[in-house]
């Protein structure tokens, strides 16, 4: 028989220990989400008045009542950005991890360490590095080189703003993807690649038919991770181009930020965020479905 007193005491102790965490989660996660949701149905601005206007914000967003002239461009930007940064991250990470495992051990470690630097520096520094490198005057890194070679300066940010933003974020993504892929490759049993070599496989065939298939789970995980990250994060874009020039690199999450905190249209910004949250939930659902939740959460991401 269970002693009810002991169980009670256990629950009491449990709730005492767990309650701060619960309070924090509620305070910093649920409350903001609910607030955002509520604000999305108001036309709240700088004056912070709660004036409920029903679905007007969403109607405007989808062009049903009134029209946001930028929304089409924002969606297009977001898609281009993700379509560029995601393959760059996964493909680059894969390529670099495979190459770095091929070369001498110490050189490989050094090589991977270099590519991990972007993760180690503060976002502001990383952002500034790109701004400085592609600065449109002769003081920017690349233009300084061009000037030295007697070539005219190029206005990089006017000509290729999206490309720069994609690369800055992609390189950041590569560092994590490469780390994950490298450790996955390192855990592939040596005998397996040796067997392939004895079977007559070239380096490329070993990579194509043995290594990459065995990285299936790490690749899927990293794809999902970075997909969500590119949908939601705007910090680096904000630091590098701030969405410009003239909305050329303004993606959805940055647009929401600008609406709320630059133009003080809190209500509209909140509705943009709400849509983003819904997109996130949909993506999460698709990802979990595609992976099989249980498989992803269970161990053995590298099949041996």
């Amino acid at each position: 028989m269970k002693n009810p007193n002991i169980t009670d005491r256990k629950y009491l102790a449990l709730s005492v220990f767990i309650s701060p965490a619960v309070v924090l989660v509620i305070l910093f996660y649920f409350v903001p989400v609910i607030l955002t949701l509520l604000i999305a149905f108001t036309d709240m601005d700088r004056s912070l008045q709660w004036n409920f206007i029903g679905f007007d914000n969403f109607a405007k967003l989808f062009g049903l009542k009134g029209k946001d002239p930028f929304i089409g461009k924002i969606i297009k930007n977001t898609l281009i950005y993700i379509a560029g940064a995601l393959p760059l991250t996964i493909g680059g990470g894969l390529l670099l991890s495979i190459l770095s495992m091929k070369i001498d051990r110490n050189a490989g470690v050094f090589f991977r360490a270099i590519f991990f630097i972007p993760r180690a520096v503060p976002p502001v520094v990383w952002g500034f590095l790109w701004v400085w490198a592609f600065e449109g005057t002769r003081y920017g890194l690349f233009n300084a080189i061009r000037t030295a070679l007697g070539l005219p300066v190029v206005h990089w940010f006017i000509k290729y703003p999206m490309l720069i933003v994609i690369m800055a974020n992609g390189f950041l993504g590569i560092s994590l993807a490469m780390l994950v892929f490298s450790s996955a490759i390192a855990s592939i049993p040596r005998d397996l690649t040796r067997a392939a070599e004895i079977d007559g496989a070239t380096d490329w065939q070993i990579t194509r038919y043995v290594i990459i298939p065995m990285l299936k789970w790490p690749i899927l995980t990293m794809t999902a991770w970075h997909l969500m990250s590119f949908v939601n994060s705007y910090v680096y874009i904000m630091l590098i181009t701030n969405g410009g020039p003239y909305y050329a690199t303004e993606v959805w999450s940055l647009y929401a930020y600008h609406a709320a905190f630059n133009r003080y249209r809190y209500g509209y910004g909140a509705s943009l965020i709400t849509v983003l949250v819904l997109v996130n939930i949909a993506l999460l659902f698709i990802v979990l479905k595609a992976f099989g939740v249980r498989k992803m959460l269970s161990r053995g991401k590298i099949e041996v």
Partner: peptide
Amino acid sequence: IPPRSRNIGMVFQSYALYPH
């Protein structure tokens, strides 16, 4: 001569079957 050109058949202690 690299392993792939030696025309050798090998069975490893772990068998090293391709799991996929």
